[in-house]
Write a protein that binds this DNA or RNA. Structure first.
Length: 272
DNA sequence: TCAGTCAACGTGGTAA
DNA sequence: TTACCACGTTGACTGA
């Protein structure tokens, strides 16, 4: 995975050092929501994602059998769930999640009853917690793998298969997309953090190297810093004197008859 | 007890 | 206007 991959996935890495809080740098939602928005003098990151495929495909046709529950305690659960004042007890919900596949059919029946109870206009505004059964979750996951979004018909069909309301199927898909995006964002964020660390280290190394070169430049005369191949004999050196700020005509021996070098990077006319 | 999970909800943006 | 979506939030529930 390299920077090309980042580009291909629509990710943009911005590396910088800021002493102020940058709202744009906190677009990485998962981390930003759990920690400080932007740390002082920390590298800032921006992240964008490509939207998913929104084509509709053939949905799963797996059927879930619905049979009548036979256990008395399950009927009791149904009775409790239909009660206007009660929400689902821990025991009943846990039992639903812990039961094996052989109880799938009764699970659907119970959930279906819950749905019905949700639709009952009993005057209670208490939000009831629905736990999807394993079979329902599996079918929803299977459908989600085929298409992350649903058209109305797919939603209706899936709701009928699962004995849920279309609204519940819709909500499940919305939450599922959000979880997928969150997970992918966290993965991308981790990768970008590693990239940031690498670039920060590289930047630190280059700064150190620059400081060393600057120190070397101060310690040595210019003509000693440059390789011999880059030095050229100044044509004016054939004359006596010629130093900057000096008047050869007044003091022709002020400057020794040593070679006078000049750098091609400087102005040759100023050199002499 | 508490942090994490997740169904459900509210809101704002957008396309048809 | 309507339906749908993304996003943020709420609150019931779970497991350590």
């Amino acid at each position: 995975m390299g920077f090309d991959d980042i580009c291909n996935t629509g990710l943009v890495l911005g590396l910088g050092f800021s002493s102020t809080t940058d709202q744009k740098s906190t677009k990485i939602t998962p981390l930003a929501s759990k920690g400080p928005a932007s740390l002082t003098f920390e590298p800032s990151l921006t992240l964008s994602l490509i939207s998913g495929d929104r084509t509709y495909e053939q949905q799963a046709t797996k059927k879930v059998n619905v049979t009548k529950p036979s256990n008395d305690h399950q009927s009791a659960d149904l009775y409790r769930q239909d009660s206007a004042a009660s929400s689902y007890s821990n025991a009943s919900v846990k039992r639903e999640r812990d039961v094996g596949s052989e109880e799938t059919t009764t699970e659907v029946e119970r959930v279906s009853s819950r749905v019905i109870s949700d639709e009952d206009d009993d005057g209670s505004n208490a939000r009831k917690k629905l736990r999807l059964t394993k079979a329902q979750s599996a079918l929803l996951e299977e459908s989600f793998k085929l298409h992350s979004t649903l058209n109305p018909k797919q939603k209706q069909d899936l709701a009928m298969e699962l004995s849920l309301r279309p609204r519940q199927v819709e909500v499940w898909f919305q939450n599922r997309r959000a979880r997928t995006k969150l997970k992918q964002t966290e993965v991308d964020c981790e990768f970008l953090k590693k990239c940031c660390e690498t670039l920060t280290e590289e930047n630190r190394r280059l700064h150190k190297e620059l400081q060393e070169l600057k120190a070397l430049k101060i310690a040595q005369p210019l003509y000693m810093q440059l390789p011999a191949a880059t030095l050229t004999m100044c044509p004016s050196c054939e004359r006596i004197g010629g130093g900057v700020g000096e008047n050869p005509s007044k003091n022709p021996f002020t400057i020794a008859q040593k070679p006078h070098f000049y750098s091609p990077f400087n102005n040759p006319s100023a050199a002499c």
